[in-house]
Design a binder for these strands. Structure first.
Lengths: 341, 341
DNA sequence: TAGATTTGCTCCATCGATTGAACAAAACTA
DNA sequence: TAGTTTTGTTCAATCGATGGAGCAAATCTA
């Protein structure tokens, strides 16, 4: 019953009068161990409530079966559902996931990386914090010789596997949609340029404007962290312009929500006077009023493919590590906030 | 530069012509090692880019400095902010956190427990899945002799430390508030009875009704998982009653949101015709319209105290493990959804 | 039935770090 | 200067699991 002390293969060996190595081999289903012994070992293991010591086998094998995952925030539908799927895939291949949050802080991210390396993870899957510009710590992971896979927020310079959507194309799609709704003066509440994905969204936005013969105005692009307050501030700034925009494309749903709040407060009708599109398909976008048009990034797909890319690296360690981008298609979900009948 | 192979204390020892054990002692600041040697070791360690192998020291010391955390969902403001604070406290004491999600599934929870035990965590901090009734797996943690701390969703029968709010009192506070707004027929969209916290919320609700001389009706209490769809379904059921309620107290914000959606769809005015109160202070409650009254559980406090309780257990392993409830006070945030001028 | 092969296990070194015991050299004491 | 203490290090065992080499017994082959 209350057998508190943990048992080892040695204990099992003692009970059966065989050696620990025989027990180890039996547990690992080694063909050179007789069926009889294997069954006996299983039985005794169960009786003694034996649990293998992962530290010992990991040390011996030089493999911990742990995967470190770094995300900016767990409290985001996108990241939590990506991680959920990743866990599912990795677990089914014998890996356990250690999930850490950077809270968008570069410093926290560095500490997380150190903690993961210290824990001897077999690899790292990460989405970079908004703040992150220096890549030194990520280089540290690479120099350890363990796989590093980035998703969503990546960086070309690291030259590693990357899984994400085509931000450039997706942005163009958003602008095209807004133009089709009759919008002529489209503002962009953007993420910070230094982050690859936000830079691409800005590029896509600008290039689409050019394509539709609309003027690009610096005043209509405001960079921020894309939080709800950032969205509010940006919206207020846009409303102070001499000619105000007739559409807002926010590079994040929370910023879109902040913008929507301000619009409601000042009595500007959405979508009649101002169309609005967000990004990420956070659940709340569907139940605020009006529901916000947004981008579905196929979260589970990103999670699945990222995990599979990691597994592939583990299985082919000799494969040369280079920039390897896997780009998925995103989907525009049109809701009331950008519908002009 | 690209020295990919990781160095060990043996490598350091070779460079300096001393033994690995001297290096180990130097790195651990053993008083019997000369200052000169310590400095030399530090220097060489840096040059060789030495990183201690956690697996080896954890195996030897019988302590991994890892804490397993199990939460129902990461995509919840409550849980993610609790975990964030826990991480902060535990990190500052040399522990790393392995965070896993049960997704409210008992089976996933069991697998998570196994994975954590396998990883040789020094302790487990958990909030139980809604589905969980069997305590066998949690007993398994206890029987390992490592600390188990529960927060928010706990279970008396496990007889371990628990950190949470006083659900009974809080529920009474909600009902009192609704009565003060003039409500006479208060429905409760409840969580499942088998979960201690939801049972207490139901008890508090009922006892408060009695206190205010209001009738308790079975029809007005609907148990569910408290998701958004559960809230919708429950609300629809309540609207089918011969006499419909004039207030809804939902034991979770998502259920409250679902209820609100239905009310808006059928054109019932909130709060004029029906008051609404949720639970947990999820961010969206403040920005839907009307903003939903809810309960602030002081997330960071719960995280901090839970972590400290864990640390206390680690420092005093001999302390007898019994039911030890630490109860924090919650706060009712009154917003428009339950304000009757 | 001698010789070759297979089977089933034991033996032992190993993963990297830790730690108490042991021990030589240096420093101190009387 | 002999004896004691302190200092700085080495030695050896250990944490638990693993796996290749080795070896005796069982089984197969001709």
């Amino acid at each position: 019953m209350g057998n508190k002390k943990k048992s080892t293969i040695k204990d099992i060996a003692n009970v059966l009068g065989i050696t620990p190595s025989a027990v180890s081999k039996a547990l690992n289903n080694n063909p050179r161990i007789s069926e009889k012994t294997k069954i006996a070992v299983q039985q005794v293991a169960k009786n003694l409530n034996y649990q293998p010591n992962h530290l010992a086998s990991a040390l011996r094998k030089g493999k911990s079966n742990l995967v470190g995952v770094i995300i900016p925030r767990a409290n985001s539908n996108f990241f939590s559902s990506v991680v959920e799927k990743m866990e599912e895939v990795l677990n089914s291949h014998g890996y356990n996931v250690i999930m850490t949050q950077s809270n968008e802080s570069y410093e926290k991210e560095c500490r997380n990386i150190d903690a993961l390396l210290y824990t001897q993870v077999d690899g790292v899957i990460a989405s970079m914090a908004n703040e992150t510009v220096e890549l030194e710590y990520y280089q540290k992971i690479k120099s350890k010789g363990i796989p590093l896979i980035l998703f969503d927020r990546g960086e070309n310079d690291l030259e590693v596997d990357y899984v994400g959507i085509d931000d450039y194309m997706t942005s163009q799609m958003v602008v095209k949609h807004l133009v089709e709704q009759g919008c002529k003066r489209i503002a962009h509440i953007a993420g910070f340029q230094h982050s690859r994905i936000y830079k691409n969204r800005i590029r896509g936005y600008k290039d689409a404007l050019v394509e539709f013969d609309l003027p690009i105005s610096k005043d209509l692009i405001i960079e921020s962290n894309l939080g709800i307050d950032d969205g509010r501030r940006s919206m207020k700034k846009l409303l102070e312009l001499p000619i105000r925009p007739d559409a807002i494309y926010a590079a994040g749903d929370w910023a879109a929500l902040g913008a929507l709040q301000v619009l409601k407060e000042v009595g500007i009708k959405v979508p009649e006077e101002m169309a609005l599109v967000g990004f990420s398909n956070e659940p709340f976008t569907s139940f605020v009023s009006p529901p916000i048009s947004t981008i579905n990034q196929h979260n589970s797909e990103i999670g699945r493919i990222t995990a599979e890319t990691f597994l592939d690296r583990m299985e082919n360690p000799s494969k040369e590590v280079t920039l390897n981008k896997i780009i998925l298609e995103a989907e525009l979900i049109i809701r009331q906030s950008s519908k002009n009948k």
